[in-house]
Design a protein around this nucleic acid. Structure first.
Length: 283
DNA sequence: ACCTGACCTCGTCT
DNA sequence: AAGACGAGGTCAG
């Protein structure tokens, strides 16, 4: 019988700095993160108690890491990453925040995305004080659906402002229902997300993986394609250029076949591995 | 069906 | 010091 409390462990540095989240910062010795209408606070020695339900859920302590590691360890690169970042966790984020964040991420870079989202919270979110520090919570779908495009634009979203607003309206009017998307399967959920203006394959996969319980989701961005080309050129043929819808789907199928149903976890570890290799730092 | 270019903004780099 | 460049994609033609 394995000690379950052993599972209640996370290393914030690789978890926060692996491209899953944007609204986190380290102040002094603590990490502060916005997740929807909450501020999560941790230090690196954080002890997780059984009553910390939200936090445990955020870091997916309910996943069977033992089984997942066993499954993923079949690949040598992922195995290597698992060893390097044993307490890197996949996150289970507030779906609306995740959805907006990744729509905001397209054709941009991490510092810019962080800046925009922070501005968005400042303009539309509620202010709250923790440890004598001010934070702004993530706005609701209602807040953003009613916002003017010009105000959203002022946050630095550029042409994405239109997508942010219309995607928020889709949540308010029920076209997008996150609880429902959690229940239906990967392909059906993805199909619904792809109908939203501003959401393509990559963004849809991020939202599905980081907030909608689809662990087989494997977002293919330019980094992932580079990684696949570099280490897996024999297994998957990558054309390197921007890939078409069909190529994306075919590639994803091959990836599931190879990495299995926890492919999303594999993606997270590989991504972190390669970003570190290039010395990319976000905080 | 595939391919190509345009696209807001803001670090960085010259 | 101003101007070019490109960054975790998506959409329209």
């Amino acid at each position: 019988m394995s000690d379950l409390s052993k599972n209640f462990k996370v290393n914030l540095e690789p978890t926060i700095n692996s491209g899953q989240v944007f609204l986190w910062e380290k102040i002094g010795k603590k990490w502060y993160g916005i997740d929807g209408d909450r501020v999560l606070v941790f230090d690196n020695e954080q002890k997780f108690e059984k009553n910390m339900k939200y936090e445990s859920s955020f870091f997916r302590f309910d996943d069977n890491l033992l089984e997942i590691s066993k499954e993923l360890g079949k690949d040598k690169n992922v195995k290597n990453a698992l060893k390097l970042y044993p307490d890197l966790r996949l996150t289970r984020q507030n779906p609306f925040q995740c959805y907006v964040s990744f729509i905001a991420s397209s054709n941009s870079n991490i510092p810019n995305i962080k800046l925009r989202l922070k501005n968005l919270c400042k303009m539309f979110g509620k202010r709250t004080t923790i440890d004598n520090l001010d934070f702004f919570l993530f706005p609701s779908a209602h807040d953003l659906a009613n916002a003017t495009m010009s105000d959203i634009r002022k946050c630095g979203f550029g042409y994405r402002a239109k997508a942010i607003k219309s995607a928020s309206i889709s949540v308010v009017n029920g076209e997008i229902n996150f609880e429902e998307l959690k229940k239906i399967d990967y392909h059906k959920a993805k199909e619904k997300l792809l109908k939203i203006f501003g959401i393509g394959n990559k963004v849809a996969d991020c939202v599905l993986l980081f907030s909608l319980e689809k662990l087989e989701s494997f977002p293919l961005d330019r980094w992932m394609l580079r990684i696949l080309q570099k280490y897996y050129s024999k297994k998957f043929q990558i054309s390197t250029k921007t890939i078409t819808e069909k190529t994306y789907d075919r590639l994803h199928e091959n990836i599931i076949e190879y990495f299995g149903c926890y492919a999303g976890y594999a993606q997270q570890f590989l991504f972190k591995l390669e970003r570190d290799l290039y010395g990319k730092k976000w905080l």
